[in-house]
Design a protein around this nucleic acid. Sequence first.
DNA 1: GTCTATAGGATGATAGAC
DNA 2: GTCTATCATCCTATAGAC
Lengths: 199, 199
Amino acid sequence: MGGTRRQEILDAAIAVMAERGVAGLNLSEVARRVGIRQPSLYKHFPSRHAVYDELFRLAAQQQLEAARKAASAARPGLEALTAYVEATGRIALAQPVLAQLLGSRPVPDFEPSREAFRPSVEYVEDVRAHLRAAVEAGELAEAAAEDDAVALMSILVTGTLSQQLANEPNAAYDEGRFTRLIPQVLDMFVRFYSPGGPP
Amino acid sequence: MGGTRRQEILDAAIAVMAERGVAGLNLSEVARRVGIRQPSLYKHFPSRHAVYDELFRLAAQQQLEAARKAASAARPGLEALTAYVEATGRIALAQPVLAQLLGSRPVPDFEPSREAFRPSVEYVEDVRAHLRAAVEAGELAEAAAEDDAVALMSILVTGTLSQQLANEPNAAYDEGRFTRLIPQVLDMFVRFYSPGGPP
DNA sequence: GTCTATAGGATGATAGAC
DNA sequence: GTCTATCATCCTATAGAC
């Protein structure tokens, strides 16, 4: 993952955030690790904010791609949705720092640019599309395609990941006290929206 | 809520965190608002960390007391659990800054002391006790008293609150896009653990 | 308990030579 | 693209007078 100096800087930034918290990104420390002087960083990024933004953009895009790839190998509907969510959990635990940057907003000054945020918007649209597909396949009740259901699914996924990242950020996906419950979490959702059911 | 200087300082600290993020607590700014010089703060708190710790302790204790009070007015079992969780949501939105301090860990250096963290431990024990009571009352299946169910409930509550606080921190509880789904969230859990059900 | 003064650092960012 | 030098702040914390 090295190669270009730009990439070295991003890698070092992730390492620094892993040690000092996502908000603790420190350009002097980044420069030290890359082996250059701190002012030289400004030939690669115009500001500290720009480093955050690029990390956010890359993380959101990688998350989106990984989830889409996993879903595309599955049958449309519930199976694809399940694969999509599970891939999200796996990549979050593989890159806990980036997942925290994406998920919460621990950096007071930083707001991602529109461009950087776009993959996250597409992510939510994907979830909605998977829910619609499951409804059309008769796997879920009509209500599962509505806004409340999308919000509910988002509560489930972010809740699981934020609990896992806050309590056992270095656990493996299948052993994490929370991520290992993902199948049950999804099962809970599916049963709630089972066709012919109450909601 | 004013009164003592110590309390004035804590109130000002909350206000500063509301504006600059939980991690952005700034003693000079706190002093300015209280109307004293920054070094004078050290007559009331030995360090910045101590301010965080006291805020954490107070927030955890108030959350615990509010939830317990709400639950005590309800019938033991599911009703009490529901009241307990709803009260948690309401107090979190009433004090979003403190809820963020309790929930995530957005301050890199700060780790709450044992003493400050104790109410949070009791909170989890309470949830477990309510689940046990609901099982004994025949309202939930046996499995609802086990560790996974406690983790699941914790995913649901923290997921709802973190999504609400991240996206609409200033919404009213009943209008929040996420907190307003609390009844459905609990319903989903209850149905998943309905007596005679599969888990 | 409040003040002034200041130590002692850290940090993001810019200017200009090479 | 990298360097040195430096600016301009900003912050927590301490010392000591009142």
